[in-house]
Design a protein around this nucleic acid. Structure first.
Lengths: 322, 322
DNA sequence: GTGACGGATGGGAGCGCTCCCACGCTGACG
DNA sequence: CGTCAGCGTGGGAGCGCTCCCATCCGTCAC
């Protein structure tokens, strides 16, 4: 029995007689044979491996529910396709160089990029190297070639629309990082909605954070220190909203009576706060799946849509009750 | 210039003249040459890649601060050694089979196993295949060949010692999963300490959870439903303590006045609760580093200690104040 | 009975790299 | 001046696999 036949069986290609197939499988079982992936990759030029690069430090990645959702979606879809996921956190110093080196050494079929900040060299570097790449979310200043994102503009709008609809007029926005389109768009959407409701953009108090709970606390404190307390607050992430909730309470303001509070993500934490948190749900798991879908298309050389935008949905809970 | 010389330069082996080295490096820079890792692996039989398998679903891994700490330690130490980390979550259905297949296909130099439950076939399978493996924590029933763990027995003891020292006598333990040694030992340690303080083991209320916040709520509710409320509660994880805190408050019991509460992990969340949470600190990042250290030793064929036990330290905060 | 056809099979070639051997050159020593 | 040691270098061999071509055998039509 030649190597050719064995190879055919293991890659279940046609034109193999049942007898030969059985013989090969029996031999494989008996010898505990496991094909050498390096050798296979060397000739097929594929690795059946996809890497996810998150440009944040480990603490952030593991602390924020947003990432868990995305990774789940990615992992599920990749498993269906029979591919392995390599997770890399390139937040720390030197992480980027190491990631770039790894990625270009031709042992991944494609790359998923998450949480891109401004001036990240990775997308263009990878494109230049010919590694198929799909981004989840984009930096504020540039637009990656293949992008899956949620409609942050509409999400921000829906949050403020709701605050206004429940009678709030003195608004504050605790914005996310302004070097990411998600941070910027949520803010812009919120301001658009305020304006549409007849509120001057300049009258909306804005403080910038980085999506973390700690930054939410800081931003909320900043807003309270700067002027009269708002009666409606939109935080760009649930974690920031949780931080804000604490600061508001410490300042003697009741949520939702004195202040309506809206978060973003619709993470599990929303149901654990008191009151429960109204939030803009983003379909994180689906976003992960779609990213993989687009990437698989690119790897296969198929024509794929360069941009995919997923919609958000407002989930109303106690923190904005009237 | 022959391939041999080029190879020598790229692997910076000695016996290369400076002139040849410069020439090679110049050529590399000019051509944008990147060595093919598959080809290298094929001949060296090394991949410079280590995989971390966490036997939990994604949600858990990303939700629990414990994992973030371990991964940080692992990532740091691995980066120092110039190795890549592949993160695999094998919690979902079929995850184990896929992981096992991947791991045995000879593209990882070693495996780190985390959160092993009883009857996990992975450790013995990998040993049989000759893949160097190091476990972080062990299942309740078996003992992996190479193990890095924290002293859960002493940790559980220190928690109850402290409760007793602050005058609590009616104790409850919200235990972790009993198919893991960490869950079992923390409970046993706690009961040992109770007994040492003259409290009958049988009088300590015990409810079992799985380290999650939700399970902490359930376990606390179970204890409250079963008899008179305790005045001292030891939860096997901080997340469980947070859940318990909520249930205690809803039951009209004040922490720390009516009930003293101790968690385990000393996660960031301890400082975010009200009152702040007394907790048993476990050196998670260091545990990650040590796991890598042992694994690197095994990969290099060095003699390494089969067992390493790291000590815990009680951090006292408001939740046990008197 | 013979020729043509098609599916199954065996094996050569080669993927890109490292390993190692052999060779050439230089410098020191007899 | 010849010889030998030793560093640098070039290139053959081979890692384990897939691809593809040539071959073989069984089948069917004429």
């Amino acid at each position: 029995m030649g190597r050719g036949t064995a190879s055919r069986v293991l890659n279940d290609s046609p034109h193999v007689s049942p007898a030969a197939r059985d013989a090969v499988l029996a031999a494989v079982a008996e010898l505990g044979y496991v094909p050498n992936r390096a050798a296979r990759s060397l000739v097929t030029r594929r690795t059946d491996t996809v890497v996810l690069v998150v440009s944040e430090p480990e603490e952030r990645v593991f602390g924020e529910p947003y990432f868990a959702g995305i990774v789940r979606g990615i992992g599920e879809r990749l498993a269906e396709a029979g591919l392995q996921l390599v997770l890399t956190m390139a937040g720390a110093a030197g992480g980027h160089e190491r990631a770039a080196a790894y990625l270009t050494e031709q042992h991944v079929d494609g790359v998923l990029l998450l949480s891109l900040h401004a001036e990240d060299p990775l997308p263009s570097l990878l494109e230049a190297r010919g590694v198929p790449t799909v981004c989840g979310g984009s930096p504020a200043t540039s637009r990656p070639a293949y992008l899956v994102d949620i409609d942050n503009l509409a999400g921000g709008r829906s949050a403020v629309d709701h605050l206004v609809a429940t009678g709030r007029r003195r608004l504050a926005v605790l914005a996310g990082p302004q070097d990411m389109s998600s941070g910027r768009d949520r803010l812009v959407g919120a301001l658009d909605a305020a304006e549409a409701a007849g509120i001057d953009r300049a009258e909306v108090a804005v403080a910038v954070g980085d999506y973390s709970e700690e930054s939410g606390r800081r931003a909320m404190a900043e807003v309270l220190a700067a002027g009269p307390p708002p009666d409606g607050v939109f935080a760009a992430s649930d974690l920031m909203a949780v931080g804000a909730l604490r600061v508001l309470r410490e300042a003697g303001l009741d949520v939702p009576t004195d202040v309506g509070l809206v978060g973003f993500d619709d993470a599990a934490v929303c149901r654990h706060t008191d009151p429960e948190l109204t939030s803009v749900r983003q379909p994180v798991a689906r976003m992960g799946r779609v990213m993989v879908e687009v990437l698989l298309g690119r790897i296969a050389g198929r024509e794929v849509p360069p941009d995919t935008v997923l919609q958000t949905r407002l989930v109303v809970r106690g923190s904005t009750a009237r």
